[in-house]
Nucleic acid binder design. Sequence first.
DNA 1: GTCTATACCACGATAGAC
DNA 2: GTCTATCGTGGTATAGAC
Lengths: 201, 201
Amino acid sequence: MARRRESAAGDGRPELTLTERARRAQLIEVTIELVAAKGYAGASLAAIAERAGITKAAVLYHFPTKAAVVRAAHEHALSALVGEVATAVEAAGPEDGPAAYIRSMVGHLRKHPRHTRMIIEAMTHDEGDHDPAARWRPLAELITVAGHARGASADGDARTTAIIIGGAIDAIVSEQLHDPDYDTAAAADLLVELLGRKLSP
Amino acid sequence: MARRRESAAGDGRPELTLTERARRAQLIEVTIELVAAKGYAGASLAAIAERAGITKAAVLYHFPTKAAVVRAAHEHALSALVGEVATAVEAAGPEDGPAAYIRSMVGHLRKHPRHTRMIIEAMTHDEGDHDPAARWRPLAELITVAGHARGASADGDARTTAIIIGGAIDAIVSEQLHDPDYDTAAAADLLVELLGRKLSP
DNA sequence: GTCTATACCACGATAGAC
DNA sequence: GTCTATCGTGGTATAGAC
């Protein structure tokens, strides 16, 4: 029971009017600002509506639920991150994929603290737990490829290694959120070094 | 303006009635169960009260706010964790402190999944951000001591190394929460190995 | 000292008027 | 496309029964 027209191509994407596009973009923008400033709980529908100059009900015309607003804002921030990381990884050779992944991800999150807070809050407060494997699988594949390229003995530890790296990145970025003077670039270098010793025994 | 008598020793700790002790313990117990089963949001005051067989207001007689209930449950779970880890670390030699820290912490969290969920939810949804340094400082000191004991060149990276290890532990434990078959012991071993290569170059 | 009853306000969400 | 009005729920405060 779609609340809105579908495009003629029938691809499932809704046709959006110009004002609707503008509103959605605006709502996503203020939601990112609010979540970054006051956390998930602080970003109430009333607060979002007030910053956008409309009412709660009007916000819920453009998005079905508050969770949908936050999800849209999350995906907006996330797509920027994965885009930059993917570009960096592709620019690097197969041997240096994991290092490029680590450095570009830490670098991006350092450059965009509001996006960082948004992504962390969304991951954290997400009710419907999305597949955790989505987080570590891309990195695990990079690690496997890099291991082959360096002629290391094939190990079945790619999953655990990726999980460790992912958790370490989260912790480094979180630390920078609390202490803006923390040197995340050096931390990323140390993490790359640790991984390097494992990949090139 | 204390709501309750203080002990004769004047040490600031309130004297608790037998029934009060029992109620607090019961409330902490049901809160841990609820948070573990349905997350922070699912553990409403009404749900806690219902499981305990009393009313919302009765819960708020024993604790000033919902946050206080959750905090008490969190501290209960946390004290068991730090107790076990501290014992394990003291039993190990100075060289093996970090390894004992990693293995005992991962092991404890594997044995007590409900406590794990409780601790993670509390860390995650905590409004008043308590000092993040409290998380990495003890491990950083173990790392420094172990580095000296092994005669490694003194490095100023203990903080970052501890942050990385802490984040990695969180990720390993979280993964086990979603996939109960995940081999956390092997993951802890890999993490120890990674650290070992750094400490003994 | 322990608890129930009750009322209050903020929040997310729905229904329907304009 | 946006509004007002309203509802259910959640956390909290107070009064008072026992």
